[in-house]
Design a binder for these strands. Sequence first.
DNA 1: CGATAAATGCAACAAATGAATCATTTATGT
DNA 2: ACATAAATGATTCATTTGTTGCATTTATCG
Lengths: 295, 295
Amino acid sequence: MPQRDPLREQIIAQYDAMSPQLQQAARYVLEHPDEVALVSMRELARHAAVQPATMTRLAKFLGMQGYDDIREHYVAALRRGSDGFAAKVRQRGDVAPETVNENIAAHMLQGLSAQMTKLCEPDSLQRLKAIAHTLESAGKVYVLGLRSCHSVAWHFHYVMSLLGDRSVHLDGPAGTGGDGLIRATLEDVLFVVSVKPYAVATLELTQLAKDKGLTIVSITDSEVSPLVGMSDQTIFCPTESYSFFHTLTPALAISEVLCTLLAEDDRPKALDALQQADEHFLSLNTYSATIPRRE
Amino acid sequence: MPQRDPLREQIIAQYDAMSPQLQQAARYVLEHPDEVALVSMRELARHAAVQPATMTRLAKFLGMQGYDDIREHYVAALRRGSDGFAAKVRQRGDVAPETVNENIAAHMLQGLSAQMTKLCEPDSLQRLKAIAHTLESAGKVYVLGLRSCHSVAWHFHYVMSLLGDRSVHLDGPAGTGGDGLIRATLEDVLFVVSVKPYAVATLELTQLAKDKGLTIVSITDSEVSPLVGMSDQTIFCPTESYSFFHTLTPALAISEVLCTLLAEDDRPKALDALQQADEHFLSLNTYSATIPRRE
DNA sequence: CGATAAATGCAACAAATGAATCATTTATGT
DNA sequence: ACATAAATGATTCATTTGTTGCATTTATCG
């Protein structure tokens, strides 16, 4: 990974100008960047066979205010290596509010970008695949997502309804949301979306579906979410954001991926269903015919 | 194969037996394992919104001698992780025998990640800021998004409704969606979301609002979207995806950013409103407060 | 060699950390 | 409803941390 490391380059550049002790310290830092982030200065000094003060002096020599600047740099580097996002969220309290406000939009978006990348990890991909398979072989798919999760649930249902008639959205006026389950059978699947704080109604309906013998598939935000225990399969979506709101963007992304996997599984059938939908909308004049010219 | 993590599994296993505060601490640890290794206990506690002592108590609860045992574990894990990084990169090389489905999912997610990053460009950020300002100084904010864009519109409205009572969702059964505009005034703003193919109803309602003198702010997918000509301000969301569906994830992200900017603009007021909402939900038992325990 | 300055080691310091204690609040059971 | 226990918050304490000032050593140059 050709990751630029300005501090490392600076140390190398100034290495020849250092005193022997400083060189020894610098050399240890170069060769054990992780240690800098993970242990205290005194311990690092011990491992480098150098006086604690030398580390401080190294920092000053490099034009920094103190040793903490060095560590902070390597902590940031380590974070980037393993997880690029969590770091930034936490800095919020420490940074001047004005600065954050200016950049808050960019920070949020970059965080989301990192979260999308994180969802590419093998574990997530495997779960996606498995859940897609479950949904494929299901009878009806009941879709449940209340309050903030409504957006995800509805979008999933909407796309599914374009692909066929297997999807039932458990939502409705006058508290009739759960009625869809009345005729649910063992072959059916409940697709439920919920993140903290978990709506009581969601948990209750899910429990009901489970009692009726449905397979439960869920999108939720944590291993310790109450949904995990009720679900046959779960996929986790990060929800952290710079704002004091949770983000549902990753959850929506997951939902879209699932829809795509389902459609791809039987591509001809999906195309056919979409064609049908197109004709339907055309005859209803649902969509604007004056579509922006392309090409 | 994902790394085995005994401590993580232990925390998950004992999670249900923990007190609420312990759960909160444990949850933060689960979700931010790197932080445990990289910051002090007090800082971790601060980020987890928990008392420092709670972290010590968590350690004791897990049968350890002190918090340092927890950290030591995560330090070791991080060390292994960064060492094993080269291995991960190597894995990427022989990705050949993967199934098609996994590739689609990964491609989609990586594409989304890139799109989020693209939204950080100065032009987008400036538009976001400007739109946020318009929404701030608006009277009512009417929110319109039909069909696939319903998810974005509804989510925006939902968050806005937590923050105050200025948001009106132009949606409703029996074709009453547009009725909300009946008493709209010149100070009000229409916030409309639409991507290709553009729903006729959306365009018609938007035109009506424009005729009534409302300010029109839109999220749409192209410079040549029909919404651009009707709108005072527009922000563009990419919708391209590797699947044959459009993606609404970037649009949702934009919506969330806008909500955050609005809330941040008057942070105390936002916090106050959220507090009110919390109390409301508490008295209604909307959310599962203490997660159901099983022994 | 001897005088000067740089480099190094040592010790003491304030600030922070993690842990322990106690008072108060909240939940539980009869 | 009350009594009891559990959970939580606040306070305090002994350590450890990073830093600094000073004494000592080492290198440099006339």
